[in-house]
């Protein structure tokens, strides 16, 4: 397998396929996500309702869809969404907790975001993707994890993968990449060194 497109958001910088794509003057999550949304010129009102985890995953995926032409050649259920992070949806958990503990009014709009896989639902709705979707919790970013999952999903369960690491704490640390088959051979390996390379490429 090969990585045919990747988006890296680190602190206030956005890189696409290793090249500088956007830089914000502000590394605060809210500011960064809104600046990037405006920069992309995307019109998608549902974006405003999303929690930060979904916003970050959504923005990185929008960038990949805009810059990676290969993604459009796959049918609606051929792309598996494999996302992970270390802190789940803790930011939304805090907000919902605040709504009932401090505001004394449990917020249903915040409660629905207290599951990390809601991000996958947002991506599926936006792109009409009906394929496999899995959200995993890992203690830290692991190129080996994505490499091993790639071997499982392609070709048995999917033809291509959209993989994502979306961590918001302690700093914005987002890495989303699109990987597809690059040969007709049965052996499908996505080299963890290739994943590691793009993840570490943040200069």
């Amino acid at each position: 397998m090969k990585i045919s497109g990747c988006c890296r958001i680190h602190q206030n910088k956005v890189l696409v396929n290793g090249k500088k794509y956007f830089a914000s003057d502000n590394s605060q999550h809210d500011e960064l996500s809104m600046q990037l949304y405006r920069f992309l010129k995307t019109e998608y009102p549902k974006f405003y309702k999303m929690d930060l985890l979904s916003k970050m995953g959504f923005l990185a995926t929008e960038i990949i869809c805009q810059t990676t032409s290969a993604i459009s050649k796959f049918a609606d259920d051929e792309i598996a969404l494999l996302f992970a992070n270390s802190h789940s949806c803790s930011e939304s958990d805090e907000r919902f907790n605040h709504s009932f503990k401090v505001e004394k009014s449990p917020s249903p709009a915040q409660f629905v975001y207290t599951l990390p896989n809601i991000l996958l639902g947002e991506l599926a709705i936006r792109n009409k993707w009906y394929g496999e979707n899995l959200f995993t919790l890992l203690p830290a970013f692991s190129a080996e994890y994505f490499s091993s999952q790639a071997g499982i999903f392609v070709p048995q369960k999917a033809k291509a993968l959209l993989c994502g690491w979306v961590n918001l704490f302690p700093v914005t640390d987002v890495f989303v990449f699109f990987a597809e088959s690059n040969s007709e051979t049965a052996q499908e390996i996505l080299d963890s060194k290739e994943i590691e390379h793009w993840y570490n490429n943040i200069k």
């Binding site: 270390s86 802190h87 599951l115 996958l120 959200f135």
Partner: peptide
């Protein structure tokens, strides 16, 4: 909230001296 899911995985990893850190799947 930040450690709610990874903390039990770490606890079991250390308690049983597992060879691999457990994956946690959270898909509603």
């Amino acid at each position: 909230f930040e450690n709610a899911i990874v903390s039990p995985a770490k606890f079991l990893y250390e308690k049983y001296k597992l060879k691999h850190f457990p994956f946690s799947i959270s898909n509603a």
